[in-house]
Design a protein around this nucleic acid. Sequence first.
DNA 1: CGAATAACATACAGTCTGCATGTAAATCCG
DNA 2: CGGATTTACATGCAGACTGTATGTTATTCG
Lengths: 197, 197
Amino acid sequence: MQPESGRRSNRDRTEATRSDLIAAARKLFTEKSYAETGTPEIVAAASVTRGALYHHFADKQALFAAVVEQEAAAVAQEIETASPPALDARDALIAGSDAYLAAMRAPGRTRLLLLDGPAVLGRAGMDAIDNRHGNRSLREGLVAAMRSGSMKKLPPEALTMLLASAFDRAALAIEAGGSSEDYRAVLLALFDGLSRA
Amino acid sequence: MQPESGRRSNRDRTEATRSDLIAAARKLFTEKSYAETGTPEIVAAASVTRGALYHHFADKQALFAAVVEQEAAAVAQEIETASPPALDARDALIAGSDAYLAAMRAPGRTRLLLLDGPAVLGRAGMDAIDNRHGNRSLREGLVAAMRSGSMKKLPPEALTMLLASAFDRAALAIEAGGSSEDYRAVLLALFDGLSRA
DNA sequence: CGAATAACATACAGTCTGCATGTAAATCCG
DNA sequence: CGGATTTACATGCAGACTGTATGTTATTCG
């Protein structure tokens, strides 16, 4: 009964090992790329063996998917935290995009979420993850703006995808040294262009 | 002097071997992914040995870069061929985007150019390739439209990137089964939103 | 308390990449 | 024209990595 060291429930062990593996993989996947990070290096950083990894995850790609899911959730969380509620549609879009671009400045995040993620998991796989997190609120905001009449009516799914894609490319360009103000200005112009006169 | 079979200049041999390797790699990289295609399979398809591959290319990534470059050029060529010259800015943009989306329907092209390309060569590497081909005319068109006063003035580099990114995502979404009309409508709305009233 | 199962650890097979070395053909040069 | 040099490969090897199969120990179930 007493949780002495040396007496742990299987659920605790699993949770701890999975968590250690994901943390170690996250660190390496953000420092280097998915392809450049080997499972021997990951398990060494997590102080377990490859046997543990392949017990908890089907393969290296499944571990990667878990890391991406966690990181996408973290980005969505940062946006939600930074965005004050109850603004009008346009201000909410601006606040959200600023928060997104700020969140994507975390080292290695753009490569993990915007380059390796789509290549390894496929665009469909990444869309599934994104729709569970960030994209959802973006689409809801757009739908609300369209309903309220402040934005042109357009297919919500397509509009969400293309705007999200513009955010993504802006994050990549800014990390590559592009002018943050320039990209912000263009994003703003795109929003305003979609608003009803 | 006579080009008998068995007497070929080194330049001819190099050109033929390089071309065979790129063609074989292009076929496999578009059928499967970069990661799933091994160099043994490539050289077998090209009827050469791995020694030839590593003689002509620094590594597998360099061969991939050559394939991407060729394919990006092909896309740009198809767009140029399909786009009648001397339209006004808006019609040129629409024609160009339609031609781009049509060109990206070639099997495997979206994965090669939009998923594997950025992941393997980096976003900066892909930008360098894109700027040598398709993006160039897009930016020139946008600059011309801005100069003529028919479009809002915005930083050309950023605007080009974000619009190109929207094209890319539209191509991916359409291939994944998304409604071509929906994405076309959103792209058109984005253009019109950027035009000066 | 025994049986079944979960959570690993270890060992192995197959494959791949990049390089080093060897060889024949082409080119250069005096 | 002929030897020296360089080019265009072919072959073999070393190291690393992935996934799996098998063995072992700690839990959990009945």
